[in-house]
């Protein structure tokens, strides 16, 4: 899975949690909660959705790494086996 695929899947999960997010306007570098009304419950739902989609556990201490879309993509890419080398 390459980063573009990861990004597409992560964005899909994000939009499921927060349908009001406009993907065109979302700044991938800035934490999502700084841009939208995205509270801890939304964040937990997003994390759960990512964990389920990519079949991995995301420990609470790593939450800080997935605050932004870019951060989440980077984190996922590094933690999915075999995907890191592709890039």
């Amino acid at each position: 899975m390459n980063r573009e695929e990861i990004r597409a899947l992560a964005l899909k999960k994000l939009l499921q949690v927060a349908p009001d997010i406009n993907p065109g306007e979302l700044d991938p570098k800035t934490p999502i909660r700084d841009q939208y009304d995205f509270d801890s419950m939304d964040f937990l739902n997003f994390t759960i959705a990512l964990g389920r989609e990519f079949q991995m556990d995301i420990p609470e201490k790593d939450y800080v790494a997935i605050q932004s879309l870019d951060g989440a993509v980077e984190y996922l890419a590094q933690h999915i086996e075999g995907s890191a080398e592709e890039n």
């Binding site: 801890s40 419950m41 937990l44 994390t47 964990g51 389920r52 556990d57 609470e60 201490k61």
Partner: peptide
């Protein structure tokens, strides 16, 4: 830290 994602608690 010991719980899988879906079972984690929020402080609320």
């Amino acid at each position: 830290a010991e719980r899988p994602l879906p079972l984690r608690l929020v402080y609320a």
